[in-house]
Design a protein around this nucleic acid. Structure first.
Length: 246
DNA sequence: AATGTACGCAACCGCGTCATA
DNA sequence: ATATGACGCGGTTGCGTACAT
């Protein structure tokens, strides 16, 4: 799924990271931190460029990162923030604990972009929050014409099996071999339990997310964030008075 | 069963911004 | 005030997987 490892003309390794490299990088950073990414490969003994090390650490090795299993709340937040902020992924990521701009960006391009077309700027965040079921059924019928697909199932076609077959953690547990290993397994003990099910299969998806008034569910997010918070954050962002913080 | 196609994940690349000398 | 280096962000690309034909 990822690029095969190779060495460039300068002897710098590119492509997929091995387990040994991940362990080396993790151990070094946990011991020494990362005051200088450019020097880090030399000091840690990795044949990578600093940029690559930084990317690997921030997006995959850093503790407490969540992978996959986006909650509905997270998805709606991403869609609505993107509607207002466009491609400011780092800003959006700050409001989703455990998510990285990189992952959100990928998720957007692979899946949410399609969902956002359904809402398509017709509803404000507050409107989404207060829609009656009748009105949301209208959105639902529009949604059916778009036929969104599963984001994490490899090919996006087995949507109905999303939770059963592509839920990230169980899958990683099964495939954490030398060849298919994922660093997420290394961090599993550090990751908070992910209760959130993005969709409960196709049938429940159709009758749940799109038919129920949007209510942020605190059980799925570590940072409490309300609809009002989002709108305030967006308006403050544009007038320069909002300081994004975690 | 073999081949083609679509898609997602993970990595790389280029450029803008910031800090420092 | 300017030059340089490092970092961070957003866009793009490559490859593996799964479904369709």
């Amino acid at each position: 799924m990822v690029r095969a490892p190779f060495y460039d003309k300068n002897g710098v390794k590119k492509g997929a990271w091995s387990r040994e490299e991940d362990e080396c990088l993790t151990a070094y950073i946990q011991k020494n931190g990362h005051p200088n990414w450019r020097q880090l490969p030399k000091l840690s003994g990795l044949a990578r460029c600093g940029k690559s090390c930084r990317l690997r650490w921030l997006n995959y090795l850093k503790p407490n990162l969540k992978h996959g299993n986006y909650t509905r709340e997270e998805e709606v937040i991403i869609i609505k923030l993107h509607q207002q902020l466009e491609n400011k992924w780092s800003v959006i990521a700050e409001k989703l604990p455990g998510r990285t701009d990189h992952e959100i960006k990928n998720y957007w391009h692979s899946y949410l972009k399609k969902c956002s077309n359904i809402i398509d700027n017709e509803y404000t965040i507050s409107e989404l929050n207060s829609k009656s079921n009748d009105t949301l059924e209208e959105i639902d019928s529009n949604k059916n014409s778009v036929t969104p697909q599963s984001p994490s199932s490899g090919d996006g076609k087995d949507f109905g099996n999303y939770i059963l077959e592509s839920s990230t953690l169980p899958k990683l547990a099964e495939t954490s071999t030398e060849e298919n290993y994922s660093p997420s397994s290394m961090n599993s003990s550090l990751m908070e339990e992910d209760n959130g099910a993005p969709w409960l299969g196709l049938e429940e998806f159709e009758g749940d997310f799109w038919n129920e008034p949007f209510v942020l569910d605190d059980t799925h997010t570590t940072n409490e964030i309300s609809i009002d918070d989002i709108e305030l954050m967006i308006s403050d962002y544009y007038d320069g008075s909002y300081m994004f913080s975690t």
